Simulated scan of single mutants.
Amino acid sequence: MENAALLKAIIENAIDGIITISDRGIVESINPAACNLFQCVPEDIIGKNISVLMPPPDRNLHDAYLHRYQRTGEPHIIGIGREVTGLRKDGTIFPFRLGVSEVQYSGRKIYTGFIHDISREKEAETRLKEYASHLEELVEQRTISLKRSVQALLMAKEEVSLSLEKEKELGQLKSRFVSMASHEFRTPLSSIQLSSVLIEKYAQEFSNPNITKHIAKIKMSVSNLTGILNDFLSLERLEAGKTEALVTEFDIVKFAEEITEEMQLVAKQNQSIIYQHTGTASLFRIDQSLLKNCIINLVANAIKYSGENTFIEFNTEITGKTLTVVIKDNGIGIPDSDQKHLFEPFFRAHNTGNIPGTGLGLNIVSRYVDLMNGAVAFESNVDHGTSFTLTFSRP
Rank of each mutant, 00 (worst) to 15 (best):
A152Q: 02
L154G: 03
A156P: 00
K157Q: 05
E158Y: 06
E158K: 09
V160E: 11
L164N: 09
E167K: 14
L170S: 09
L173Q: 14
K174L: 09
S175N: 11
R176N: 14
R176K: 15
F177D: 02
F177Y: 11
F177T: 10
V178M: 06
A181F: 02
E184G: 08
L189Q: 02
S190I: 05
I192Y: 06
I192P: 06
Q193D: 05
L194G: 06
S195D: 04
I199N: 03
I199R: 05
K201N: 07
Q204T: 12
Q204V: 10
E205G: 05
E205M: 05
E205K: 12
E205V: 10
E205L: 05
E205R: 06
N210W: 06
I211A: 05
I211G: 03
T212V: 11
I215E: 02
K217V: 05
I218D: 01
V222C: 15
N224G: 04
T226D: 01
G227S: 06
I228Y: 04
D231T: 04
D231I: 06
D231N: 12
E236K: 13
R237Q: 13
L238W: 02
E239R: 13
A240S: 12
T243N: 02
T243M: 07
E244D: 01
L246N: 12
V247E: 03
T248H: 10
F250Q: 05
V253S: 15
K254G: 15
F255Y: 12
E257T: 09
E258P: 00
E258D: 07
T260Q: 15
T260P: 02
E261Y: 13
E262M: 13
M263T: 01
M263S: 06
M263W: 02
L265S: 12
V266C: 08
A267F: 00
A267T: 02
I273N: 10
I274S: 08
I274G: 03
Q276W: 00
T280W: 01
T280G: 10
S282F: 14
R285T: 08
